[in-house]
């Protein structure tokens, strides 16, 4: 039987894989995918907590699941807007390589 610790460990590992995608890849779309991975990891840990902490009637705490719902919605909106920005950036700079986006350099 999986314990809460197992779920959290998996969630943490997923999060760190997303983090490494953000830190190590230089294509901006891949970085964006890493962000999605991180959000999903937090969704997993929220649902796990919702299932493992039962309220007084023995039912899961649905507030966390509502929060997950909201997170998924917001993530979808964020992806839409972010991709629109990437498209605009591509049109301006003709590149998706993140190291070429350094106009704010000293």
């Amino acid at each position: 039987m999986p314990t809460l610790a197992n779920y959290l460990l998996v969630s943490g590992l997923l999060f760190s894989i997303g983090l490494s995608a953000v830190l190590l890849r230089r294509n901006i779309l891949i970085i964006f995918m890493g962000l999605e991975l991180m959000l999903s990891a937090s969704n997993l840990s929220l649902v796990a907590f919702s299932r493992f902490h039962l309220d007084l009637e023995g039912m899961p705490n649905y507030n966390a699941q509502v929060l997950v719902f909201f997170i998924i919605t917001v993530a979808a909106a964020e992806v839409a807007v972010g991709l629109a920005i990437i498209v605009a950036l591509y049109r301006a700079k003709q590149t998706t390589h993140v190291e070429d986006l350094n106009s704010l350099k000293f």
């Binding site: 830190l23 993140v98 190291e99």
Partner: peptide, 17 residues
């Protein structure tokens, strides 16, 4: 401190993390 403004987003993310 001015040399920290390198304009590289991933470097910023690295420092953040």
């Amino acid at each position: 401190l001015r040399f920290l403004q390198i304009g590289n987003i991933q470097a910023y993310a690295f420092f953040f993390g």
